[in-house]
Simulated assay, not measured.
Amino acid sequence: MKINIIALLLFLSSANLFAIQVDTLIINSKSMSKSIPNIVILPTNYSTQQEGFPVVYLLHGAGGDYKNWLTKVPELEEYADRFNMIIVCPDGGSTSWYIDSPIDQTMKYETYISKELIEAVDTKYNTVKERSKRAISGLSMGGHGAFYLSFKHQDIYGAAGSMSGGLDFRPFPHKWELSKRLGNYSENKDNWEEHTVMNMVYLLTDDHLKLIMDCGVDDFFYDGNKRFHKKLLERNIPHDYIERPGKHNWNYWPNAIKYQLLFFNDFFEFASSD
Protein backbone atom coordinates (compact mmCIF):
# COMPACT_ATOMS: atom_id res chain seq x y z
CA MET A 1 0.00 0.00 0.00
CA LYS A 2 2.82 2.40 0.86
CA ILE A 3 4.46 1.73 -2.49
CA ASN A 4 1.18 2.48 -4.28
CA ILE A 5 0.74 5.73 -2.38
CA ILE A 6 4.29 6.81 -3.12
CA ALA A 7 3.85 5.93 -6.78
CA LEU A 8 0.64 7.93 -6.90
CA LEU A 9 2.30 10.94 -5.30
CA LEU A 10 5.19 10.74 -7.74
CA PHE A 11 2.75 10.50 -10.63
CA LEU A 12 0.76 13.52 -9.46
CA SER A 13 3.93 15.48 -8.86
CA SER A 14 5.27 14.71 -12.33
CA ALA A 15 1.87 15.47 -13.88
CA ASN A 16 1.88 18.91 -12.30
CA LEU A 17 5.26 19.59 -13.86
CA PHE A 18 3.68 19.21 -17.28
CA ALA A 19 0.32 20.84 -16.58
CA ILE A 20 -0.89 23.71 -18.72
CA GLN A 21 0.15 26.94 -17.00
CA VAL A 22 -2.09 30.00 -16.72
CA ASP A 23 -0.36 33.16 -15.55
CA THR A 24 -1.73 36.55 -14.60
CA LEU A 25 0.83 38.99 -15.94
CA ILE A 26 0.66 42.48 -14.42
CA ILE A 27 2.21 45.21 -16.56
CA ASN A 28 2.93 48.74 -15.44
CA SER A 29 1.86 50.85 -18.39
CA LYS A 30 4.03 53.95 -18.72
CA SER A 31 1.72 55.42 -21.36
CA MET A 32 -1.29 55.32 -19.02
CA SER A 33 0.42 55.35 -15.61
CA LYS A 34 -1.40 52.32 -14.26
CA SER A 35 -1.01 48.59 -13.73
CA ILE A 36 -2.89 46.35 -16.16
CA PRO A 37 -3.59 42.60 -15.71
CA ASN A 38 -3.37 40.08 -18.55
CA ILE A 39 -3.91 36.32 -18.72
CA VAL A 40 -1.18 34.24 -20.37
CA ILE A 41 -1.91 30.61 -21.27
CA LEU A 42 1.14 28.41 -21.81
CA PRO A 43 1.03 24.97 -23.46
CA THR A 44 1.98 21.79 -21.62
CA ASN A 45 5.49 21.52 -23.01
CA TYR A 46 6.39 25.17 -22.42
CA SER A 47 9.07 24.34 -19.84
CA THR A 48 10.67 21.59 -21.92
CA GLN A 49 10.66 23.04 -25.45
CA GLN A 50 13.73 25.09 -26.30
CA GLU A 51 12.50 26.78 -29.45
CA GLY A 52 10.23 29.79 -29.11
CA PHE A 53 6.43 29.71 -29.27
CA PRO A 54 4.07 31.65 -31.53
CA VAL A 55 1.66 33.99 -29.75
CA VAL A 56 -2.00 34.84 -30.31
CA TYR A 57 -3.35 37.98 -28.62
CA LEU A 58 -7.07 37.64 -27.90
CA LEU A 59 -9.07 40.82 -27.21
CA HIS A 60 -12.32 41.03 -25.25
CA GLY A 61 -15.43 43.02 -26.11
CA ALA A 62 -17.03 46.15 -24.63
CA GLY A 63 -17.92 45.76 -20.98
CA GLY A 64 -15.53 42.83 -20.64
CA ASP A 65 -12.09 42.36 -19.17
CA TYR A 66 -9.03 40.13 -19.41
CA LYS A 67 -10.79 37.22 -17.68
CA ASN A 68 -13.70 36.99 -20.15
CA TRP A 69 -12.24 34.68 -22.74
CA LEU A 70 -10.88 32.05 -20.39
CA THR A 71 -13.95 32.16 -18.14
CA LYS A 72 -16.38 31.75 -21.02
CA VAL A 73 -14.20 29.45 -23.13
CA PRO A 74 -12.07 27.31 -20.78
CA GLU A 75 -11.23 25.18 -23.82
CA LEU A 76 -8.61 27.83 -24.62
CA GLU A 77 -6.23 25.85 -22.43
CA GLU A 78 -6.78 22.79 -24.61
CA TYR A 79 -6.32 24.85 -27.79
CA ALA A 80 -3.05 26.36 -26.56
CA ASP A 81 -1.85 22.82 -25.95
CA ARG A 82 -3.18 21.36 -29.20
CA PHE A 83 -1.63 24.07 -31.36
CA ASN A 84 1.46 24.50 -29.18
CA MET A 85 1.01 28.26 -28.91
CA ILE A 86 0.86 30.93 -26.22
CA ILE A 87 -2.47 32.73 -25.90
CA VAL A 88 -2.52 36.17 -24.26
CA CYS A 89 -5.77 37.76 -23.11
CA PRO A 90 -5.10 41.45 -22.35
CA ASP A 91 -7.27 43.82 -20.39
CA GLY A 92 -8.35 46.50 -22.85
CA GLY A 93 -10.51 48.56 -20.54
CA SER A 94 -14.28 48.38 -20.60
CA THR A 95 -14.75 50.61 -23.65
CA SER A 96 -11.31 51.60 -24.93
CA TRP A 97 -11.91 50.34 -28.49
CA TYR A 98 -8.16 49.64 -28.40
CA ILE A 99 -7.22 53.05 -29.72
CA ASP A 100 -5.15 55.95 -28.47
CA SER A 101 -8.00 58.36 -27.82
CA PRO A 102 -7.55 61.72 -29.56
CA ILE A 103 -9.50 63.46 -26.79
CA ASP A 104 -8.53 61.55 -23.65
CA GLN A 105 -4.80 61.28 -23.03
CA THR A 106 -5.35 58.71 -20.27
CA MET A 107 -6.65 56.18 -22.82
CA LYS A 108 -3.75 54.84 -24.90
CA TYR A 109 -4.62 51.23 -25.54
CA GLU A 110 -3.10 51.13 -29.01
CA THR A 111 0.25 51.99 -27.45
CA TYR A 112 -0.33 49.57 -24.60
CA ILE A 113 -1.29 46.52 -26.66
CA SER A 114 1.06 46.93 -29.62
CA LYS A 115 4.09 48.20 -27.74
CA GLU A 116 4.14 47.76 -23.97
CA LEU A 117 2.32 44.42 -23.77
CA ILE A 118 4.18 42.77 -26.64
CA GLU A 119 7.54 43.93 -25.30
CA ALA A 120 6.67 42.56 -21.85
CA VAL A 121 5.45 39.20 -23.19
CA ASP A 122 8.48 38.79 -25.45
CA THR A 123 10.78 39.63 -22.52
CA LYS A 124 9.20 37.31 -19.96
CA TYR A 125 8.25 34.34 -22.13
CA ASN A 126 9.94 32.14 -24.72
CA THR A 127 8.33 33.58 -27.83
CA VAL A 128 9.34 33.92 -31.45
CA LYS A 129 9.84 37.66 -31.74
CA GLU A 130 8.73 37.97 -35.34
CA ARG A 131 5.49 39.02 -37.05
CA SER A 132 5.36 35.63 -38.76
CA LYS A 133 4.68 34.06 -35.35
CA ARG A 134 2.35 36.69 -33.93
CA ALA A 135 -1.42 37.04 -34.47
CA ILE A 136 -4.23 39.06 -32.94
CA SER A 137 -7.98 38.56 -32.80
CA GLY A 138 -10.99 39.53 -30.74
CA LEU A 139 -14.75 39.69 -30.45
CA SER A 140 -17.02 42.70 -30.94
CA MET A 141 -15.02 45.76 -29.78
CA GLY A 142 -12.04 43.41 -29.76
CA GLY A 143 -12.68 42.44 -33.38
CA HIS A 144 -12.44 46.06 -34.35
CA GLY A 145 -9.36 46.40 -32.15
CA ALA A 146 -7.61 43.41 -33.69
CA PHE A 147 -8.06 44.73 -37.24
CA TYR A 148 -7.31 48.32 -36.22
CA LEU A 149 -4.05 47.40 -34.48
CA SER A 150 -2.90 44.91 -37.11
CA PHE A 151 -3.65 47.24 -40.02
CA LYS A 152 -1.63 50.02 -38.39
CA HIS A 153 1.18 47.76 -37.19
CA GLN A 154 1.80 45.24 -39.94
CA ASP A 155 5.43 45.10 -38.88
CA ILE A 156 4.26 43.55 -35.58
CA TYR A 157 1.39 41.23 -36.56
CA GLY A 158 1.40 38.69 -39.37
CA ALA A 159 -2.23 37.60 -39.06
CA ALA A 160 -5.45 39.02 -37.62
CA GLY A 161 -9.02 37.96 -36.98
CA SER A 162 -12.34 39.49 -36.08
CA MET A 163 -15.35 37.74 -34.53
CA SER A 164 -18.62 39.71 -34.68
CA GLY A 165 -16.44 42.77 -34.95
CA GLY A 166 -17.70 46.32 -34.65
CA LEU A 167 -15.89 47.10 -37.88
CA ASP A 168 -17.89 50.25 -38.52
CA PHE A 169 -18.98 51.98 -35.32
CA ARG A 170 -20.22 55.15 -37.03
CA PRO A 171 -23.87 53.94 -37.10
CA PHE A 172 -23.76 53.72 -33.29
CA PRO A 173 -22.80 57.24 -32.09
CA HIS A 174 -24.46 56.84 -28.68
CA LYS A 175 -23.27 53.32 -27.86
CA TRP A 176 -20.40 51.83 -25.83
CA GLU A 177 -18.99 55.20 -24.68
CA LEU A 178 -17.60 55.87 -28.14
CA SER A 179 -18.22 59.58 -27.66
CA LYS A 180 -15.89 59.49 -24.63
CA ARG A 181 -13.11 58.13 -26.84
CA LEU A 182 -13.73 60.15 -30.01
CA GLY A 183 -15.87 63.11 -28.99
CA ASN A 184 -19.47 63.84 -29.92
CA TYR A 185 -20.09 62.49 -33.43
CA SER A 186 -21.74 65.62 -34.83
CA GLU A 187 -18.83 67.80 -33.72
CA ASN A 188 -15.93 65.38 -34.22
CA LYS A 189 -16.69 63.50 -37.43
CA ASP A 190 -13.02 63.51 -38.45
CA ASN A 191 -12.11 61.50 -35.33
CA TRP A 192 -14.79 58.94 -36.12
CA GLU A 193 -13.79 58.66 -39.77
CA GLU A 194 -10.10 58.28 -38.94
CA HIS A 195 -10.54 55.65 -36.24
CA THR A 196 -13.11 53.30 -37.74
CA VAL A 197 -11.29 50.35 -39.27
CA MET A 198 -13.84 50.43 -42.09
CA ASN A 199 -11.84 53.35 -43.51
CA MET A 200 -8.44 51.69 -43.05
CA VAL A 201 -8.61 48.99 -45.73
CA TYR A 202 -6.38 51.20 -47.91
CA LEU A 203 -3.48 50.27 -45.61
CA LEU A 204 -3.58 46.68 -46.86
CA THR A 205 -1.64 45.37 -49.84
CA ASP A 206 -2.10 41.93 -51.36
CA ASP A 207 -1.89 39.19 -48.71
CA HIS A 208 0.85 40.69 -46.55
CA LEU A 209 -1.49 40.43 -43.55
CA LYS A 210 -3.41 37.16 -43.29
CA LEU A 211 -7.04 37.89 -42.38
CA ILE A 212 -10.02 35.93 -41.11
CA MET A 213 -13.40 37.35 -40.13
CA ASP A 214 -16.76 35.92 -39.19
CA CYS A 215 -20.12 37.16 -37.97
CA GLY A 216 -23.54 35.71 -37.25
CA VAL A 217 -26.30 36.67 -39.66
CA ASP A 218 -28.53 37.77 -36.77
CA ASP A 219 -25.84 40.01 -35.26
CA PHE A 220 -26.36 43.79 -35.13
CA PHE A 221 -22.84 44.13 -36.61
CA TYR A 222 -23.65 41.83 -39.52
CA ASP A 223 -24.26 44.63 -42.03
CA GLY A 224 -20.92 46.25 -41.20
CA ASN A 225 -19.13 42.93 -41.59
CA LYS A 226 -20.72 42.33 -44.99
CA ARG A 227 -19.69 45.80 -46.15
CA PHE A 228 -16.17 45.25 -44.86
CA HIS A 229 -15.98 41.93 -46.70
CA LYS A 230 -17.11 43.67 -49.90
CA LYS A 231 -14.43 46.32 -49.51
CA LEU A 232 -11.76 43.66 -49.19
CA LEU A 233 -13.06 41.94 -52.32
CA GLU A 234 -13.07 45.22 -54.26
CA ARG A 235 -9.42 45.77 -53.38
CA ASN A 236 -8.49 42.14 -54.07
CA ILE A 237 -7.33 41.58 -50.49
CA PRO A 238 -7.29 37.82 -49.74
CA HIS A 239 -9.17 36.85 -46.59
CA ASP A 240 -11.31 34.14 -45.06
CA TYR A 241 -14.90 35.24 -44.54
CA ILE A 242 -17.48 33.22 -42.62
CA GLU A 243 -21.12 33.97 -41.95
CA ARG A 244 -23.45 31.53 -40.25
CA PRO A 245 -26.54 31.52 -38.02
CA GLY A 246 -25.85 33.30 -34.77
CA LYS A 247 -26.30 36.40 -32.66
CA HIS A 248 -23.97 38.68 -30.74
CA ASN A 249 -23.46 36.42 -27.74
CA TRP A 250 -21.38 33.73 -26.08
CA ASN A 251 -23.31 31.00 -27.89
CA TYR A 252 -21.52 32.12 -31.05
CA TRP A 253 -17.93 32.96 -30.04
CA PRO A 254 -16.72 29.64 -28.57
CA ASN A 255 -17.27 28.05 -31.98
CA ALA A 256 -15.73 31.00 -33.82
CA ILE A 257 -12.48 30.95 -31.86
CA LYS A 258 -11.85 27.30 -32.78
CA TYR A 259 -11.75 28.17 -36.48
CA GLN A 260 -9.64 31.24 -35.94
CA LEU A 261 -6.99 29.46 -33.88
CA LEU A 262 -6.80 26.76 -36.55
CA PHE A 263 -6.35 29.52 -39.15
CA PHE A 264 -3.54 31.08 -37.10
CA ASN A 265 -1.90 27.71 -36.53
CA ASP A 266 -1.84 27.09 -40.28
CA PHE A 267 -0.33 30.55 -40.77
CA PHE A 268 2.39 29.88 -38.19
CA GLU A 269 3.25 26.52 -39.76
CA PHE A 270 3.36 27.95 -43.27
CA ALA A 271 5.54 30.83 -42.12
CA SER A 272 7.96 28.40 -40.45
CA SER A 273 8.42 26.53 -43.72
CA ASP A 274 9.49 29.61 -45.68
Rank of each mutant, 00 (worst) to 15 (best):
K2P: 00
L8H: 10
L9W: 09
L9E: 09
L10K: 13
F11P: 01
L17K: 14
L17C: 09
F18L: 15
A19R: 12
I20E: 06
V22Y: 05
D23G: 08
T24I: 12
L25Q: 12
I27G: 04
N28I: 03
K30A: 06
S33D: 15
I36Q: 04
N38C: 09
I39Y: 00
I41P: 02
I41F: 07
I41R: 02
T44Y: 05
S47Q: 13
S47C: 07
S47K: 15
E51S: 15
V55R: 07
V56R: 00
Y57C: 01
L59H: 04
G61C: 10
A62L: 05
D65E: 10
Y66S: 08
N68M: 08
W69Q: 04
W69F: 04
V73A: 11
P74E: 14
P74K: 05
P74Y: 08
E78H: 11
A80N: 06
F83N: 14
I86A: 00
I86V: 11
C89V: 00
P90T: 02
G92N: 08
T95W: 04
S96Y: 02
Y98M: 09
I99D: 10
I103S: 06
D104V: 04
Q105W: 02
E110V: 02
T111N: 10
Y112M: 09
I113C: 07
E116C: 07
A120E: 14
K124D: 02
Y125H: 03
K129H: 04
E130C: 14
S132I: 00
K133N: 14
I136Q: 03
G138Q: 09
H144Y: 05
F147E: 07
F147Y: 09
L149M: 12
L149R: 02
S150V: 04
K152D: 12
Q154A: 01
I156Q: 13
I156L: 12
M163D: 01
S164W: 00
G165Y: 05
G166V: 07
L167A: 05
R170C: 06
R170I: 15
P173L: 06
W176G: 09
E177S: 06
L178P: 07
K180R: 12
G183Y: 06
G183V: 14
N184E: 15
S186K: 08
W192Y: 11
W192H: 08
E193H: 10
E193G: 05
H195V: 00
V201W: 03
L203A: 13
D206I: 03
H208I: 14
L209R: 06
L209Q: 00
L211Y: 03
C215V: 10
C215F: 00
V217S: 14
D219S: 04
F221K: 05
N225R: 13
N225V: 11
K226Y: 08
K226L: 15
F228P: 01
K230Y: 13
E234F: 07
N236G: 07
P238G: 06
I242T: 12
G246M: 05
K247G: 15
K247H: 10
K258D: 11
Q260M: 11
Q260W: 02
L262M: 12
F263T: 05
F263I: 06
F263V: 03
D266P: 13
F267D: 07
F267M: 03
E269L: 15
A271D: 11
S272M: 08
